[in-house]
Design a protein around this nucleic acid. Structure first.
Length: 784
DNA sequence: GTAGGGTTAG
């Protein structure tokens, strides 16, 4: 064929492969596969299956055999049914293995037809008692063989004969699946079925090394792009191979590769590959440009995205609605909503593209992001009027935003409108957002109702839904309930991820149970997951809050040992921890280290921590000099920074400093808030200057700064401390009128004064009204 | 055959 100039193609190779497989010409197959590899020919899926099948016979007794028949991506395509089978055997540590390790499990999933109805659902579950057949495959030509009755001898028998049994059993199971598949593909002509058998064979003493490498080859990316590229290295290797091929592969192949890299979030790598493509003259199209523009946007470089558009334009690629949506999304990601709006309007006015549901949804997301839900809803109405039907994503975006703004009832209204007026079916994301919204408002019953409704609608919660529930429980300190959710999710086949465990760590830390939190921390590693900075920060926070500074420092060093970078939150947490235990010098040292290591200089929040830490450690002068340094550096600071200093100064008995700072506010264009007044009043009381504190209390009301619960408590304690009892009754009555409660220390001071008769016991009734239940319990004051 | 939008943690 080749000699006469007729070049063999993919089909030729596959036919030949089939023949060689059938006749077990294994050595020739290897050569053929290599040749196919060189020419970029794909091994057809069916032959991949056969190769996998064949290799089953070569598995050693000490191996794990996994035959996974996976769901192919067109599960919801018309008239196509994909089947998933899983066969897993563990033959490791033969003889001492538990019986359930030998339980094969085979299951099947069906697809849906064009009406969205399930056409086929069925499968087998091989249980240890025997075989159960289900679904429509009951009339299959051959039953799956059963383990039934053989189990005892299996364990007790001679090792080599038992291995043979495992082998023949495995073989017959896989053969059966195969026959069923063939049978059905012949019987139901209209219903196509795809079956993919993936083999993972870990074989230290593989009896047929050739087939092992053959299997590796068929799962290599360059031979089967249909299989997912999961590693960046594979993608890069594939790119090299592709770019050396003559002629160069099609633009589709390059786009698929570029998209795979992008999906792995290696955005800069994708951009680099695109540049390479341009350099070697590889084919590109609008799809390519869109992928690259998306990468720019995801890296918060939408500017570059626009530049790529301009470059494409020069090469004759006119941007379409996809490109514009990507750019719009980029602006939204960078919080440049005004510019996004401008672009959006310009596109419509200039008729540069007809906005579709994605573009409208993207703009809606932007509006939601800046909290203008009303405008977002307005746009939702507008798109509908203009004949562009919103979909579940459009509605979910707004529903989620309303939930985040605690407007869950409005969200529910929109939710009902979506279902009953628009006939749009909510999905797992819609439900997850609503459940989160309800949980955040502690509307547990409604959240449970929503979860039930979701299950009634046969929408199964995903990992994110479960994580929302886990997190909600943890935030309430109800870690046991969170763990119960975790167990349910595992039972339902969902694998808990890092987010799940991080929430649990937070939950335990909130309750001060750092030991338990550490157990979860270690569990993460045992589950094969890798800690991230969030994990470390959560546990660090727990240690710091409990003043376990040595553990915290140890963990802090571990971050860099694990080749991770502590972030702003890590440093903030550590600083608070060090200040808390009085190690302010170490804290300042760490603060300097932070400035050297963090890319973005520390912001107001960090400075606030340092200032407060110094004040709490009676280092007011140090705090003040840092404060001056801050103003020299033109760091913008607000009233919060002043509040920290005024409070710190007055508590350290440096009222004059506090006064100077307080009087300085006006010149800085800042207005004192409740916190400022509270700090000053506290300072005056501390120094016994009751008249001044009363005056300030009057003044704040005059300037429109409403005294809060804290103000009243501070003033009350100040008056009690200084033996001024005349206005106490009045203040208590005012508090009662405003619905403010008194805190534990104020309460005990009041009771104390009553018991020594310096206060009238007629006040007891009023006090009883003002004491919250927890304080009563804590102070053993149930009697009042 | 290949491209764009919505849900979770410190």
């Amino acid at each position: 064929m080749a000699e006469v100039g007729c070049v063999p193609d993919r089909v030729t190779y596959n036919i030949l492969l089939w023949g060689l497989l059938k006749n077990k010409h294994h050595d020739t197959i290897k050569m053929l596969l290599e040749e196919m590899d060189g020419k970029g020919c794909f091994v057809e899926r069916m032959y991949q299956c056969l190769l996998a099948l064949d290799s089953i016979f070569w598995v050693d007794n000490s191996n794990i055999i996994t035959v996974k028949v996976e769901k192919s991506p067109n599960l919801y395509n018309k008239n196509i049914v994909d089947v998933t089978f899983t066969v897993r055997f563990k033959c490791e540590n033969f003889g001492c293995e538990r019986e359930d390790e030998f339980q094969p499990h085979i299951s099947g999933y069906g697809g849906r037809d064009h009406k969205g109805l399930t056409r086929f659902m069925g499968g087998w579950t091989l249980l240890k008692e025997g075989t159960r057949l289900g679904g429509r495959f009951q009339n299959s030509p051959r039953y799956i063989p059963t383990w039934n009755g053989e189990y005892e001898s299996f364990i007790k028998g001679n090792l080599s004969t038992e291995i043979e049994k495992v082998r023949s059993f495995t073989r017959s199971v896989v053969e059966s699946i195969f026959l069923v598949w063939l049978h059905h593909s012949q019987l139901q002509m209209k219903m196509k079925m795809n079956i993919l058998i993936k083999g993972t064979f870990i074989a230290p003493s593989f009896k047929n090394p050739f087939l092992f490498s053959a299997i590796q080859m068929i799962s290599a990316p360059h031979l089967s792009m249909c299989q997912k590229i999961t590693k960046l290295d594979d993608a890069l290797q594939l790119f090299d191979q592709m770019s050396q091929r003559k002629p160069l592969p099609s633009v589709v192949k390059f786009n698929q590769l570029l998209q795979a890299v992008t999906k792995m979030q290696h955005y800069s790598c994708s951009i680099h590959l695109f540049k390479q493509m341009v350099a070697i003259g590889a084919p590109v199209n609008l799809y390519t440009f869109n992928i690259v523009i998306k990468c720019c946007c995801q890296m918060s470089c939408t500017r570059d995205g626009f530049a790529v558009v301009a470059y494409g334009f020069r090469r004759g690629f006119v941007p379409d609605v996809y490109i514009f949506s990507t750019l719009l999304n980029g602006l939204v990601l960078e919080d440049r909503i005004l510019e996004a709006e401008r672009l959006f309007k310009k596109l419509i006015k200039g008729k540069l593209c007809e906005p579709d549901v994605v573009m409208y949804s993207t703009m809606i997301k932007g509006l939601c992001k800046v909290g203008i839900n009303d405008t977002a809803i307005g746009l939702l109405r507008l798109m509908d009027e203009r004949g562009c039907k919103p979909d579940v994503m459009t509605y979910s975006t707004i529903i989620d935003s309303l939930c985040k703004d605690k407007m869950v009832d409005d969200a529910l209204k929109l939710f009902n409108e979506m279902i009953f007026h628009k006939g749009i079916v909510p999905d797992v994301v819609t439900y997850s957002s609503l459940i989160r919204g309800l949980c955040n408002l502690s509307r547990w019953d409604d959240a449970v109702k929503m979860l039930r409704e979701m299950e009634d609608e046969r929408i199964s919660p995903n990992v994110i839904t479960y994580n929302i529930l886990v997190d909600a429980f943890c935030k309430e300190g109800m870690v046991e309930d969170a763990e119960a959710v975790l167990n349910i999710m595992v039972e339902r086949g969902k694998v808990p991820d890092l987010v799940t465990y991080n929430s649990l760590i937070d939950g335990f830390c909130l309750r001060g149970e750092t030991k338990k939190a550490k157990e979860i921390f270690d569990l993460i590693r045992m589950r094969g997951l890798v800690h991230n900075v969030v994990t470390y920060n959560s546990l660090l926070n727990g240690y710091c809050k409990k003043s376990k500074i040595d553990e915290a420092l140890h963990l802090f060093h571990e971050i860099t040992e694990q080749r991770m970078k502590p972030d702003v939150i890590t440093y903030n947490t550590m600083l608070q921890g060090l200040f808390r235990v009085g190690r302010y010098k170490d804290a300042l040292e760490l603060f300097n280290e932070m400035k050297a290591h963090i890319q973005i200089p520390p912001g107001a929040f960090t400075y606030g921590i340092v200032l407060e830490g110094l004040c709490n450690n009676h280092q007011v002068d140090e705090a003040l000099s840092l404060f001056r340094l801050m103003s020299e550096k033109k760091l913008s600071f607000d009233i919060v920074m002043y509040n920290i200093l005024i409070d710190g100064a007055s508590k350290c008995g440096k009222l004059d400093i506090a006064k100077v700072l307080f009087n300085d506010l006006c010149a800085r264009g800042l207005y004192p808030d409740v916190w400022t007044y509270n700090a000053m009043i506290c300072g005056f009381c501390w120094e016994g200057l009751v008249r001044e504190s009363k005056e300030l209390f009057q003044k704040m009301a005059e300037v429109g700064c409403v005294p809060d619960r804290v103000t009243y408590n501070i003033l009350l304690r100040g008056l009690l401390k200084n033996g001024q009892h005349d206005t106490i009754k009045m203040l208590l009555e005012e508090m009662d009128g405003k619905g403010f409660s008194i805190d534990a220390s104020t309460c005990s001071m009041l009771i104390d004064r009553i018991s020594i008769k310096s206060l009238d016991d007629s006040l007891l009734k009023l006090i009883g009204k003002l004491v919250p239940k927890e304080v009563k319990e804590a102070a053993c004051l149930e009697s009042i």
